[in-house]
Design a protein around this nucleic acid. Structure first.
Length: 555
RNA sequence: UGCCCUAUAGUAUAAUGGUAGUACGACAGAUUUUGGUUCUGUUUGUCUAGGUUCGAAUCCUGGUAGGGCAACCA
C-alpha cells in the first residue's frame, strides 16, 4: 500500500478532477455486473480497480446489477457475485439494480419522444439490421421514423401496457443513420419481452436496452467516474448524448483494457458453455478462471489483489502470463502455509536395521519461513512410503535421490542408504530396502555425513489416506481465443488428475475445508469442501517451482 | 474500404521533452535437512519513415501492425 508507484491513467484523471474541484472532489465509482454468470479473474481486475480507486481517494463504490435482460438473469448469479466481491475483501456503498430505475428510465424515454428525439418502429429485427448499413456504408431511415410525437407517445404507452407481442415494436433514438459511429444510427432504446424478471416479476413487458440504461443509471447515482472496458468506447458518445438531451447529472465514462490470461478463456459465454456441457464440474471447478473456482483452488484474496495491482491499468490489449498469478499465490503461501508430508504416488520402503514395531515421535518444523508456526510430531517406523519418483534403479549422475547404493536424508529423520529392492513381474518397484544411520538423526546428527538429497515420507502404519486432485491448465494452447475453430477443441485432456489414495501424515487428519498446506516438495494444497470425516480431499493450488523437473525434461 | 482505440525486453508495466527502469519468466552461480525459499549475476526493448527541438519512448505528420464497432446481448 505504501509502496511508491506511479499513477495509472485513471488515477491521474481522478487526481486532476479532485484538484480542479470537479464534483466537489467527490469520488463515487460503481461495479456493474449483469447477473447472468459467475465473476472471473477479469472481473477481479475491474473490482480491484473500481473499489481500489474509490478507497484511495476517500470515495465509495456502488454495486449495481445491470439487470435489463430478464431472460438471461437469475438471483443465483446475484448471490454468487455478492459473495465473490466480499471474499475479495471489498465493501460496496449501496446494493442497487438497474431494474430499480425502470420507471425513471421509462420517463426518460417519454421525455425524448416529447422532444422529437425518439420514435416507435414497427420494423422487424431483420429489417432494422438491413437498414443499419455497414461500417463503410450509411444506413437508411426507417419508414416509421417520421411518426408524430403524439403517435409515438401513444404507441410507447401501448407497448408498456402489453398491447403488442414480443418483437412487434421497438423504441429507437432518432439519431443519424449516416453516422460513422454505428452506435449513433438510431440505436434501440426499448424492446418488448413478455418475460418474468428476477426482481420486477411481471410488472414490465418492455425492457430498456443496456445502452439506454447504463449511462443514465450512472447519472441517477451521481457516479463521478464510470469505468468500463474498451469495447464500450464507441458507445460513449451515445451515453453523453442521452445525458445532454435529458439534462441530467454528467457522469463520465473511462475505458481500460480488459485482462486476459494465457491458456484460459474469460468470456462468460464460453465459461457457461464449459459448465453446461459438463466439461468442468461447475462454475467453481478449480480449473475455471472464476473467482469461486480460484477460491476453491486455494487462491487467497490477497494474492488476487496483488496480482491485479501488478498487472496495472492501461488501454492496450494484453495477455498476462499465468505464471504471474502463480507467483503471487506462491509468494503468500510460502510465508503462511504450514509444511506437511504427503506421498502422492507411494512405494514401500523398509528399514532393515530399524526395530520392528518401534515408533519414534520426531519433531517437525511447521514453517521454516515462520518460526512462530512451531513444531508438530511426526511418527517414524521401519516401514514407510516414499514417492515413487524419488527412486531410480539406474540413476543419472545428477539424481540426488534414492538409488541402489545411494544415500539420502529422510526429512526430519535419518540418513538412509539403499541396499536392494523388489520388482514385480511387470518390472514395477514394489519394495525398497534400506539401512538407516542411527547417529544421523535430525537435530543431533553425529554421522559427519552430508547428503545431496532430502526426501519426504510417511510412516505406513500411521498414514492417513486422502484423495488428491491435481490440476493443470484447462487449455493446451497459449491463446485459445485466436485459434481456428471451436475453442473446446483446444481443451487439455489432462487438466485433472485424481489420486484416490495418497498417504498423508496423521497430523493432517484434522484438516478442515479451506485449510492450506505445503505438501513438502510437491506444492501448495487446500482441503476441498468435498472432504468428509472418512476421507479428506485436497486440491493442488499450485506446484512448487521444480528445477529438477526442468533439468530432467532437458534429457 | 468508414469511424474509434492501441503500439517500450518473451509477458506485463514505468519513465508525463533531459541517464530507458521495475516485476514475472528464462539462463548462470551461491546458500539450503524442501532440486522449495533466499541472495547474486546475465540476457533481451522504445513498430517504421520523416518532422519539431540543444535534446524525442514522450510532441506533429505519413505508413505499418494489432484490436473494437453493423445483437430486440451486456
Amino acid at each position: 500500500m505504501s509502496e511508491e508507484r506511479s499513477l495509472n491513467f485513471l488515477e491521474q484523471i481522478v487526481e486532476e478532477d479532485i484538484a480542479k474541484g470537479v464534483n466537489g472532489g467527490r469520488v463515487l465509482t460503481r461495479f456493474p455486473p449483469e447477473p447472468n454468470g459467475y465473476l472471473h479473474i477479469g472481473h477481479a481486475k475491474s473490482i480491484c480497480l473500481n473499489f481500489g480507486l474509490a478507497q484511495k481517494y476517500n470515495g465509495q463504490t456502488n454495486l449495481r446489477f445491470d439487470d435489463t435482460n430478464p431472460v438471461t438473469e437469475d438471483t443465483e448469479y446475484v448471490d454468487s457475485i455478492k459473495a465473490d466481491i466480499k471474499w475479495l475483501g471489498f465493501e460496496w456503498k449501496d446494493e442497487l439494480y438497474a431494474s430499480d430505475y425502470f420507471e425513471q428510465l421509462y420517463q426518460f424515454a417519454v421525455q425524448l419522444i416529447q422532444k422529437g428525439l425518439a420514435y416507435v418502429d414497427d420494423s422487424s429485427a431483420e429489417q432494422i439490421a438491413a437498414m443499419k448499413g455497414t461500417p463503410t456504408e450509411p444506413g437508411k431511415d426507417s419508414p416509421y421514423r417520421s411518426r408524430t410525437i403524439e403517435e409515438n407517445l401513444r404507441l410507447f404507452e401501448e407497448m408498456r401496457n402489453g398491447v403488442y407481442k414480443d418483437g412487434e415494436k421497438v423504441l429507437r433514438v432518432k439519431g443519424d443513420m449516416a453516422s460513422p459511429n454505428m452506435h449513433m444510427r438510431d440505436p434501440l432504446m426499448y424492446r418488448i419481452k413478455h418475460a418474468h424478471h428476477h426482481r420486477t416479476g411481471d410488472k414490465w413487458c418492455i425492457y430498456p436496452m443496456y445502452d439506454f440504461a447504463h449511462g443514465q443509471s450512472d447519472s441517477i447515482e451521481h457516479i463521478t467516474h464510470s469505468i468500463c472496458t474498451l469495447e464500450f468506447v464507441p458507445h460513449r458518445p451515445l451515453y453523453d448524448w442521452f445525458i445532454e438531451k435529458l439534462e441530467i447529472f454528467p457522469s463520465h465514462q473511462y475505458e481500460f483494457a480488459r485482462l486476459n490470461l494465457n491458456y484460459t478463456v474469460t468470456s462468460k459465454r464460453k465459461l457457461k458453455q464449459l459448465v453446461q456441457e459438463g466439461i468442468v464440474r461447475g462454475w467453481d471447478d478449480p480449473r475455471m478462471p472464476t473467482i469461486s473456482a480460484l477460491r476453491r483452488r486455494g487462491y487467497t484474496p490477497a494474492s488476487i489483489r496483488a496480482f491485479c495491482e501488478r498487472v496495472g491499468v492501461q488501454k492496450r490489449d494484453n495477455i498476462i502470463e499465468v505464471s504471474l498469478l502463480e507467483y503471487f499465490i506462491r509468494e503468500e503461501l510460502n510465508r503462511t502455509a504450514n509444511r506437511v508430508m504427503a506421498v502422492l504416488d507411494p512405494v514401500k520402503l523398509v528399514l532393515t536395521n530399524y526395530p520392528e514395531g518401534q515408533v519414534e515421535e520426531l519433531s517437525a518444523e511447521n514453517n521454516p519461513e515462520d518460526p512462530s508456526a512451531g513444531h508438530r510430531i511426526v511418527p517414524f517406523s521401519n516401514t514407510l512410503y516414499i514417492e515413487r519418483e524419488d527412486f531410480m534403479e539406474n540413476a543419472p549422475k545428477k539424481f540426488f535421490r534414492l538409488a541402489p547404493g545411494q544415500m539420502v536424508r529422510l526429512k526430519y529423520a535419518y540418513i538412509i542408504k539403499c541396499d536392494s529392492f523388489d520388482k514385480d513381474a511387470d518390472g514395477n518397484i514394489t519394495t525398497i530396502y534400506c539401512t538407516y544411520l542411527p547417529e544421523s538423526r535430525s537435530g543431533g546428527d553425529a554421522s559427519g555425513l552430508t547428503v545431496k538429497g532430502t526426501i519426504h515420507w510417511v510412516s505406513a502404519a500411521q498414514a492417513v489416506t486422502a484423495e488428491v486432485r491435481l490440476y493443470d491448465r484447462l487449455f493446451k494452447v497459449d491463446d485459445p481465443n485466436s485459434e481456428e475453430g471451436d475453442f473446446k477443441d483446444y481443451i487439455n485432456p489432462n487438466s485433472l488428475q485424481v489420486i484416490e489414495n495418497a498417504y498423508i501424515e496423521p497430523s493432517l487428519a484434522s484438516a478442515k475445508p479451506g485449510d492450506r498446506f505445503q505438501f513438502l516438495r510437491k506444492g501448495y494444497f487446500v482441503a476441498d469442501p468435498d472432504s468428509t470425516p472418512e476421507k479428506l480431499v485436497f486440491n493442488r493450488t499450485v506446484t512448487l517451482k521444480d528445477t529438477w523437473a526442468k533439468e530432467a525434461a532437458k534429457g
